[in-house]
C-alpha cells in the first residue's frame, strides 16, 4: 500500500518547527527517523496533512555527559547509542536494551526521541527511562520544560507532550556506584517487539538488593514500574523465597492484557520468569 498524500517541510531551526506545528495543529506530524511513522503511513493508518522533518534542526543529535547526567539528543540513532562508549559506561541498561531494537537497517535510522515520543508499550527505551528515572526535555515555542519519564507515559501511545511541543532530549542519571542493570526480553524472533520485557536496575551490595527499579514492557499501555515487587526485595538477598514473593507481587501490578499470541496468564507468567532471571543476573 502507498502512503496517502501529504506535504513535507524540513525546517532548519526549532522555531521553524514550532511555527509549522502551530499553524497545522494536529494535522501535522513530526518526522524524526520515521521508522514507525512511515510504516504506519504506508499502511494508511493515519493521514497527516504535513510531515515536519526535524532532521535539519541543529543540536538534536548526540550523547553528552555533563556531571552526573547523560544527555541523549532526540535524533540520536539506535546505532549511535549502540556504539556509544558513554552509554556503555554510564548507562549499561540502555546499552543492553538497544541490542534488542529491530535490525541494523532500522537501527541506522530510528531515533531515541522517535521511540520515546511514539511510546510503543513494547519498546525498549521507555521502560529503561522509567527504570533509570530519566527526565525528558520538552521544548515548546515559549519555553522548555522537563518531565520525568515516570510521568511522561500516560496511556497507550499517549504521552505528556502537549500540542506544539517537541521532545528534544532525554537526561539519564549516570549509573551509581554499586548499582547493576539487567535488560531481558522475550521476543519470538530476534528484533521483534517483545512479548514481555524487563528493565531492571538496583543496588547490589553484600548479596542484598536494594533500591530496585523494575520496569516492565509490553505488559500494559505504558511501561510499568513494579513497585510492590521492588518492595518485596528491598534489603534482602534474592533467595528463592524473596524472589517468589516479588514474583507473586507482580500479579497485583501488571495488567498484562492479552495480545495475538499470549493470554494475560501467559504474559504474567513470563513476566515472573523474567523477573526471576533478572534478579539472578543482578545478584551474580
Amino acid at each position: 500500500m502507498k502512503a496517502p498524500s501529504f506535504s513535507y517541510a524540513r525546517p532548519g531551526s526549532l522555531s521553524g518547527v514550532f511555527e509549522l506545528l502551530e499553524r497545522h495543529g494536529d494535522r501535522a506530524r513530526v518526522l524524526a527517523g520515521g521508522q514507525s511513522l512511515l510504516a504506519s503511513l504506508n499502511l494508511r493508518l493515519s493521514a497527516p496533512e504535513l510531515l515536519v522533518d526535524i532532521a535539519c534542526v541543529p543540536g538534536l543529535t548526540g550523547i553528552t555527559v555533563a556531571g552526573d547526567k547523560v544527555r541523549i539528543g532526540a535524533l540520536t540513532t539506535h546505532r549511535q547509542i549502540e556504539r556509544s562508549p558513554e552509554v556503555a559506561r554510564h548507562l549499561p541498561l540502555l546499552a543492553q536494551a538497544v541490542r534488542n531494537v529491530a535490525c541494523a537497517a532500522i537501527r541506522n535510522v530510528g531515533t531515541f526521541g522517535g521511540s520515546i515520543a511514539l511510546a510503543d508499550p513494547a519498546a525498549e527505551y521507555p521502560a529503561c527511562a522509567v527504570a533509570l528515572d530519566a527526565t525528558f526535555v520538552l521544548a515548546g515555542r515559549a519555553a522548555e520544560r522537563r518531565v520525568r519519564a515516570r510521568e511522561f507515559f500516560r496511556g497507550l501511545y499517549e504521552t505528556a507532550l502537549r500540542p506544539g511541543e517537541l521532545l528534544i532530549a532525554g537526561e539519564f542519571p549516570v549509573s551509581g556506584d554499586g548499582y547493576r542493570s539487567v535488560f531481558l526480553e522475550l521476543a519470538r524472533r530476534r528484533g521483534d517487539y517483545a512479548m514481555v520485557g524487563i528493565a531492571a536496575h538496583a543496588r547490589t551490595a553484600g548479596g542484598r538488593i536494594s533500591d530496585a527499579r523494575l520496569a516492565f514492557l509490553a505488559v500494559s499501555g505504558t511501561p510499568v514500574l513494579a513497585v510492590r515487587a521492588a518492595a518485596a526485595l528491598e534489603g534482602r538477598p534474592p533467595d528463592a523465597r524473596t524472589v517468589a514473593a516479588a514474583q507473586a507481587a507482580l500479579g497485583d501490578e501488571l495488567e498484562a492484557p492479552a495480545d495475538l499470541y499470549a493470554s494475560r496468564a501467559t504474559k504474567l507468567h513470563l513476566a515472573r520468569v523474567l523477573l526471576g532471571r533478572a534478579l539472578g543476573a543482578l545478584a551474580r
Partner: peptide, 13 residues
C-alpha cells in the same frame, strides 16, 4: 507450537 501452547501443555498457564 507457540510458547503459550507449550506452557499450557506444561500446566504453567
Amino acid at each position: 507450537f507457540t510458547p503459550q501452547r507449550v506452557l499450557q501443555a506444561l500446566g504453567k498457564v
